[in-house]
């Protein structure tokens, strides 16, 4: 419990910075949406297109004049930022002790190492949860002025829930890297590059049918806005895969940290 409190207190500053910059971004987005919101001339323009073309340009999935379509589009970037936040936090919560040379102090306290990691995990998870909840509330409130259409609340709640899964995946991977890698400096870089690679995968997936299998590999595709919009539900396969990834990485993390030779 002490560890959780200590970690939460230590993360207040960085949490405020993250929340502040995300607020700024969201406010800009949501105020820009007024240019599109229920813009009849734009709808008319779309309506004049032949149906095949509508389909070709994907306006059916993402109609930018509706709140659902707009949020679905821009939220992709929010997901990217939240994932970066999650993997960096997960990794640094473990690695910072060695970086700041406080690890010897922490580990001679009369608590098991597994409890230390657990406390840190809980603290980071709370951090991510708070950030997501805050953004959820912010977008909901800012969206009110545009009179959200039916289904928006459900769509966005599902999206937020899916993103939460994604955050937990990246937190666990970050913690695992922090525990497994011998050098704390390297673990951060590996986590960051992994994230970039997964992000690129999620984009090139549509290039070729042969790349279809990537959808199981890159978590960015598990709960993508387009997928949620289409099914109006989270896909159970991906939920199971996510839980498996989280469980496996945390297990590896806990086991290796127990035997870790500290890098001082």
């Amino acid at each position: 419990m002490n560890i959780i409190l200590r970690e939460l207190k230590a993360s207040i500053r960085s949490f405020l910075i993250w929340a502040g910059s995300l607020t700024l971004l969201t406010v800009v987005w949501m105020s820009e949406f007024s240019a599109f919101a229920n813009d009849d001339s734009m709808l008319e323009m779309f309506a004049s297109f032949p149906e095949g073309m509508m389909k070709a340009f994907g306006f059916e999935t993402f109609n930018i004049t509706t709140l659902t379509g707009f949020t679905g589009l821009v939220f992709t970037y929010m997901i990217l930022i939240l994932s970066i936040h999650a993997i960096l936090k997960g990794n640094s919560v473990i690695a910072k002790e060695e970086r700041d040379k406080t690890v010897e102090f922490t580990l001679v306290l009369p608590v098991k190492r597994s409890k230390v990691v657990l406390g840190k995990l809980v603290a980071v998870a709370i951090n991510c949860l708070l950030l997501m909840t805050y953004l959820y509330g912010l977008i909901m409130v800012l969206g009110q002025q545009y009179l959200p259409e039916e289904g928006f609340v459900k769509f966005f709640s599902l999206l937020a829930l899916g993103t939460l899964f994604l955050q937990m995946i990246f937190v666990s991977i970050g913690i695992m890297l922090g525990c497994v890698m011998k050098q704390y400096k390297r673990s951060g870089y590996i986590g960051a590059s992994l994230l970039i690679v997964l992000y690129i995968m999620s984009v090139i997936i549509d290039f070729s049918d042969k790349l279809e299998f990537l959808k199981y590999i890159t978590p960015f595709r598990y709960f993508a806005p387009a997928l949620i919009k289409e099914n109006m539900a989270l896909d159970w396969t991906y939920i199971i895969i996510s839980i498996a990834i989280i469980a496996v990485s945390l297990c590896i993390g806990f086991i290796t940290y127990k035997k870790r030779d500290l890098y001082i």
Binding site: K55, A56, F57, G58, F59, T61, F62, I64, L73, D206
Partner: peptide
């Protein structure tokens, strides 16, 4: 093109 909406 079908997979990528124009906004994307």
């Amino acid at each position: 093109l079908e997979n990528y909406p124009e906004v994307m």
